[in-house]
Design a protein around this nucleic acid. Structure first.
Lengths: 206, 206
DNA sequence: AATTTTACTGGACAGGTGTCCAAAATAGTC
DNA sequence: GACTATTTTGGACACCTGTCCAGTAAAATT
């Protein structure tokens, strides 16, 4: 075995190890998200997360720097998933008006289905106003959402410059949060109210 | 002294007492707000607030049921003040277009001046998604903001139905929060960016 | 001036927090 | 199978949390 082969093999082993470590991290993060979306950032302790993962508290510190690192990892993970989901809708072959309707309908559905997950996002976003440790992940996610809107506008044949995409994102986000909050407070009509409000807005504006 | 006079006097005394108590509550709340807007809901302990007020922790429990009661009182108090400030603008004798410009300018100014106070509102609003104890005060405040927008639209000679006011509120709120967040992260241009974005939106839509 | 009511204190209480680490278990390598 | 490296444990650590209350000081009432 040549020196190069050895180096190659060691490198592969290192990759396999870090891949395994990464898998375990994600596994822990998934359990952590389950706890976080139920309790919120401030009310979720590392012991809650450890219990949910069936693991000792120390193990969490073996995989994550500290609590902020863990929560940042979790939020990034779930929000990436959400953007990917929405991106699937945008990429469908629907005609422009059907696509918009589908997109809005899918958001309304997500209020019902993923309410607990979304509120975690709004929680962390607010925390970022106090704790700079969350700033990075929040701006990153928000940029991803705006990029998603750019793709949406593009598929709709609309002007898709940054400023316009940001404005559209803000409208969608505001309505989404407003009706999510009502839904969580027990208003089961909130998702369809969201759909109506956003449809009306886009019917006249976009 | 007749029986009726006695009852009258006792009633006045009771009023004076509860008025004094109310004044002290507000005084404590003002100190509490100073602490809360620096640290946020989750990170502010009763001991922080007590220290800020120059008072023992027990005193807080003498005036407030518990922490939730105290924070609810604080948020209600400061947000009522904010709505009143904005209402002053709406009530000016400006011509419609000048009024709108002044209103938006004042909001931008408030991002600079009251950034720390506003982030507390967004914090509490997020907490309400997890803790029903905050639901009431959040809906109450949000209703007051929408009512403010109704008055604004009215003064602008615009249709001022509930649905429209809600939509306009959501747009203002979304842009306000977005640029507030950027301002808090160090972007000093955020307030004027807010002004530009909102002006552009209302120039085309309202 | 005496007495009752109100206001406030300071510390005790039980429980929770993130962080850390020596030791044990498991996995991987020669 | 022996040996090393990684992974995991479980508890110790120091500190913070909201709540409560017996006791004290101040104020109001008689």
């Amino acid at each position: 075995m040549t020196k190069i082969d050895k180096i190659e093999r060691l490198s592969q082993q290192a990759d396999a190890k870090s891949a395994k470590r990464a898998r375990k991290k994600q596994e822990l993060a998934d359990h952590a998200i389950t706890a976080l979306k139920q309790l919120g950032y401030a009310r979720t302790s590392l012991r809650d997360i450890a219990a949910m993962s069936g693991v000792a508290v120390g193990t969490l510190h073996y995989y994550f720097e500290d609590k902020v690192d863990l929560i940042g990892f979790c939020v990034r993970r779930y929000k990436v998933g959400f953007v990917a989901q929405m991106d699937d809708i945008v990429r469908t072959g629907d005609a422009p008006d059907a696509l918009l309707a589908r997109f809005i309908k899918r958001l309304a559905l997500s209020i019902r289905r993923d309410a607990e997950t979304h509120r975690l996002w709004y929680d962390v976003r607010s925390q970022a106003m106090f704790d700079p440790a969350f700033e990075e992940v929040v701006f990153e996610i928000e940029a991803a959402m705006i990029a998603l809107v750019v793709r949406l506008l593009d598929r709709l044949g609309q002007p898709a410059d940054q400023a316009r995409a940001q404005a559209v994102y803000l409208i969608l986000d505001a309505a989404f949060r407003f009706h999510l909050q009502r839904y969580l407070a027990g208003d089961t009509d909130a998702p369809s109210a969201f759909e109506a409000q956003v449809s009306a807005h886009f019917g006249t504006v976009v």
